[in-house]
Simulated scan of single mutants.
Amino acid sequence: MKEVWLIDDGVSWEDVRDHVIDAIETGFTGVAVRRDFIELARKLGNIEVEEYAIETISDADDQNRIAEMLEAGRRIFIEFENWKIIPLENLIAMRRKGKIIPIVETPDEAEVVLTTLERGADGFAIRPKIRELMKEFAGIVERTEDLNLVEAEIFEIRKLGVGDRVCVDTITLMSPGEGMLVGNSAEFMFLVASESEESEYVASRPFRVNAGSVNAYIRVGARTRYLAELRAGDEVEIVRFDGKTRKSFVGRVKIEKRPMILLRARFDGVSGSVILQNAETIKLVTPEGKHVSVAELKVGDRVLAYIGEKARHFGMAVEESIIEG
């Protein structure tokens, strides 16, 4: 999970206190303050607190020195003279341990450091700013990467018997066109819609995704999790029909026995499947961002899917040969 930090070397505790409170209330990961203020800051709320320290990169020697510091597993706040991307790229490529947290001045700079070399830095830090701007910076971290969703064609629909299905209730309200990526393989995942639409039978529950069978994978950033292992407080990823993503957290998980239905789809020679509850309120998402019920799906219909890495080991992508059906 990417981090967002407030770094504040103010000498007045009253000013620093107000900044720390803003960081807590806008969802920052942590704050870095003068040593004398560390314990005072910790008493204000549940937030990580570190001692203020910045490493400046002005030449290749600085870059190599910081690379060695990262080997100790430290989180390092980094400032670049003249704002150069190349040293950041080099550090990201060289790093095996530790966390790189560059200091940025604008939201645009924050976006750049989170996407440099695709992996990006581990987060970013800002100096004290007005509360509304701090909210904007926090929102950048909540929006994770943009995904390339594809139009997959349904080629098999088959009713199954009763199975255990998982409802994921989040602490976030979702809109039509949003949901979660779920599938029977990490290589091919379907965008399962949130229950954000009203229906004739039940009221909308825009915090919920009726996600599928217990064995299925759910995408959470660069990792996958099994639906059955999700618990309250776990991070999840909300995905919109245009590929925009944001993070949320599980409020609760419900596993209940329900009649199930198997769906298979394909895109560009790659195929995948998902098993969902067989009910009219369970929906996938069309390329136009509309919801389509599994009760209305037909062979030949197109729905949104994500094509990812095939092989996984404890949720992480690995290079190996694997066949999943």
Rank of each mutant, 00 (worst) to 15 (best):
E118D: 15
T281S: 04
V16H: 01
Y217N: 14
V104I: 09
I54T: 06
L88G: 13
S271W: 10
A311E: 14
L91I: 12
N215G: 13
V113W: 04
Y201H: 09
D18R: 15
S204Q: 13
D169L: 08
A186H: 02
M1T: 11
V285Y: 03
V31P: 02
A67M: 09
E3N: 06
V166C: 12
F190T: 02
D59H: 00
V33H: 04
E105T: 06
N148L: 06
V112E: 12
S213F: 13
T245Q: 10
M189I: 12
R165T: 08
S293R: 06
N82G: 05
V49R: 10
L304A: 05
A32T: 07
I47W: 00
L117W: 05
G300C: 08
A311N: 07
E132P: 03
M69K: 14
R264F: 04
A216R: 13
V294M: 06
D9C: 01
E151A: 15
P87L: 10
N278W: 09
K99W: 14
I78F: 07
I255L: 04
K97C: 09
P128H: 10
V33N: 00
D36G: 03
F241R: 08
A311T: 04
A53M: 09
V202P: 09
I24H: 00
A211E: 06
L230V: 12
V11G: 08
P102T: 14
A222C: 10
L149M: 02
G139K: 00
A110Y: 02
D62Y: 10
R252W: 04
G183K: 06
G73T: 08
V274R: 10
D15M: 14
S196G: 12
R231K: 15
E48L: 04
K99Q: 15
N64W: 13
A305N: 00
P102L: 02
A138R: 03
T172R: 13
C167D: 14
Y217L: 04
N210C: 10
Y201Q: 08
L70P: 05
N46F: 02
Y226C: 00
E68M: 15
I78K: 02
F241H: 10
S248A: 14
K135T: 08
W5C: 00
I103H: 02
I218A: 15
I238H: 04
M260R: 02
L284I: 13
I47V: 08
R143W: 09
A222I: 15
P102G: 13
F155Y: 11
A41E: 02
R35F: 01
P287C: 04
V220N: 10
L149N: 01
E111S: 03
V250K: 09
A279N: 14
I92L: 10
V166R: 07
S248Y: 15
T144E: 06
D9W: 05
M189L: 12
A193R: 07
M174D: 03
R119H: 11
E145K: 15
M69C: 05
R264N: 03
F249Q: 14
A121H: 11
E3D: 12
R264V: 07
V104C: 09
Y217H: 10
I140E: 02
R258A: 08
K99A: 07
P128R: 05
E229A: 05
V33I: 07
K244M: 05
V318E: 08
